[in-house]
Design a protein around this nucleic acid. Structure first.
Length: 576
DNA sequence: GCCGTTTTCGGCCCGACTGTTTTCAGTCG
């Protein structure tokens, strides 16, 4: 996302929060929230748009467009400044506490002058909340508990952590008597890169046995709430899991609803409202008669709204509704479309499995081709040498066609701070393909990083840019670069962009994919496996690619080997 | 504050659960 868009999104969100805290028109606050979402998802750099173009963004009207323009002109917005002056920043912090919303936050500030989490905790211990209307002993307890949670966790977990937990729970609940169907929904089904909580959906005539089994799962550390239709628990490591049980005939409507995203659901419900229908998790109803129209399958629900079924990774209100209405939804790349993996390691460098084991595991996945790309010498700790690499090439050549798989001998090069890579051109020419990645100097200036990445693209032997931004979710920030410039270079030079499937990387991420695709960039979905187990993580790369609207044609490792080999001979290398 | 193939006014997604009430407001997703 362009930095300007990010700033405006944050500003609009802050103003929406401040409006909610001060009360008044709730719809006004919602309008700002909606505009914030629209701005975050907008592909153009907001700072380069005029008033008319700003107003063309759905959810941005005259007033908000003026405020955005004011922000770029003066660096601030007068009404937001005024709101900030009325409500201390600490009050806004209060609504980060689970169970504490804008109304309670305002009451705490207005009646007790509380404007920080610390003051709130002190006030509870001094029993000063007891005098407030609507605050009982249970509320105090919930607030203290919420503060504790806020302190000990950033909240979200990596997708593989959530997926493993969800699959375990689904398997357990599916075996409960009377369970007709069970699956995970929510952001996990949409393959978001991190997961705030896990949503499990089950269908059964009687919910009680499922709720009981759920509360008794070994992973449960705390039951947050439990009713007939919904139970929420928290696991030992602090992850919240919600179970919703619906009647079997409501399955489709419920799955659609609980898959989200919220923004997508708002759009589908608006379509329903315009057609004099009402969409809820129980079905699509006629508003006037209250009669149920459809609810059994997601396909029926979408169809009755005049839409084809929309794959969950697209459901972010990023244009999928419009594309669906036009009949132009992409045929998304699927895991079974992948014919090979183009970035993998062995124990010759930092992998943990020998070449043969990696090959056996890859062949078991049904791949037609497979690239071995161990690290190059400039990653000094890996102790790579020309001799080792050439010896590995001999072994790879000897093992070619084993289990029917064609092998490609490659390497993962290190892009140095100037954009150069490990070996001279002559040595590089001996590889079937080269991935090139940033492994050092992550904090260069934007201009230097941009030049560095573009130079790597211009190298005739670099076929794939590996984990472009170098980010490690929750640990290391992405490098700063003019990515538009880099994407243009990728497209121009025939360099593919990697979608690295490691759950803490997922790099490039969905937003970069959407952006790069507009320039005609091609992609490689790679596991970057360092063990046989890692090969299966490619599912997360596929999910990320789907979130970026990629089709098989966009992804070079879905192509037949002959087409792939042609792509791997860059135009600049052919001339040389 | 935004928006329009019923609308430039009058709507705005909708339901579950909790806690504090005694019929409902607040929070959440």
């Amino acid at each position: 996302m362009p930095r300007a868009n990010e700033e405006v999104e944050a500003l609009l969100r802050e103003y929406a929060d401040l409006l909610a805290i001060t009360g008044g028109d709730a719809f006004k606050a919602r309008a700002y929230e909606k505009a914030a979402r629209a701005v975050a998802g907008h592909h153009d750099d907001l700072s380069k748009l005029d008033l008319k173009q700003l107003r063309a963004i759905p959810g941005v009207g005259r007033s908000i467009a003026d405020k955005i323009a004011e922000y770029f002109e003066r660096g601030s917005v007068a009404v937001v400044e005024e709101a900030r002056a009325r409500i201390p920043a600490g009050v806004r912090e209060l609504i980060e506490i689970p169970t504490l919303g804008p109304k309670k936050a305002m009451l705490l500030y207005r009646d007790l002058g509380i404007s920080s989490i610390e003051q709130l905790v002190d006030a509870i211990h001094d029993e000063r909340l007891r005098e407030l209307k609507g605050f009982g002993p249970k509320t105090e307890e919930n607030i203290l508990h919420g503060v504790e949670l806020l302190r000990q966790s950033g909240g979200r977990v990596l997708i593989d952590v959530a997926m493993e937990l969800a699959e375990e729970i689904v398997a357990r609940l599916s075996s409960v008597d009377g369970c007709v169907r069970c699956t995970y929904a929510g952001s996990l089904r949409r393959f978001r890169e991190t997961i705030g909580d896990v949503d499990i959906l089950a269908a059964a005539a009687d919910s009680a046995p499922l709720m009981a089994a759920f509360r008794e799962l070994a992973v449960v550390a705390e039951v947050i709430a439990s009713g007939e239709k919904k139970t929420s628990i928290r696991t030992g490591r602090g992850l919240q899991v919600d179970l919703r049980v619906v009647p079997p005939e409501s399955w489709g409507a419920a799955l659609q609803y609980f898959t989200g995203s919220q923004a997508h659901n708002i759009r589908t419900r608006e379509i329903a409202v315009r057609a004099k229908l009402k969409l809820s998790e129980y079905g699509l109803f006629d508003v006037e008669t209250g009669e149920l129209i459809v609810s059994r399958t997601e396909e029926e629900v979408y169809q009755r709204l005049g839409l084809p079924w929309i794959p969950p990774p697209l459901r972010e209100d990023r244009g999928e509704i419009e594309a669906a209405l036009r009949g132009e939804l992409p045929e998304l790349v699927r895991e079974q479309d992948l014919r090979g993996d183009l970035h993998t390691h062995t124990d010759l460098t930092d992998g943990i499995a020998p070449l043969e084991e990696m090959l056996d595991a890859a062949a078991a996945r049904g791949y037609a081709y497979y690239a071995i790309t161990d690290h190059a010498p400039n990653l000094f700790m890996q102790r790579m040498s020309d001799e080792k690499m050439l010896a590995q090439r001999e072994r790879v050549r000897a093992l070619d066609r084993r289990s029917g798989m064609r092998l490609l001998h490659g390497t993962e090069l290190n892009i140095d701070p100037d954009g150069g890579v490990d070996w001279p051109a002559q040595f590089l020419a001996g590889f079937d393909l080269c991935v090139a990645s940033v492994h050092s100097a992550f904090t260069q200036s934007r201009a230097d990083t941009t030049r560095r990445l573009v130079r790597a693209c211009e190298n005739p032997h670099v076929n794939i840019l590996g984990h472009l931004t170098g980010r490690q979710i929750g640990h290391r920030a992405p490098v700063d670069a003019d990515f538009d410039e880099v994407f243009r270079a990728c497209a121009r030079t025939g360099t593919a962009l990697e979608v690295n499937s490691f759950p803490d990387r997922l790099d490039v991420r969905d937003e970069h994919i959407l952006h790069a695709k507009r320039y005609g960039v091609k992609f490689a979905i790679d596991s970057d496996a360092h063990s046989t187990r890692d090969l299966a993580q490619i599912r997360y790369g596929v999910g990320t690619a789907q979130r970026g609207w990629l089709t098989p044609d966009d992804v070079i490792n879905t192509w037949p080997l002959t087409r792939l080999k042609k792509f791997l001979r860059k135009p600049s290398a052919r001339d040389a």
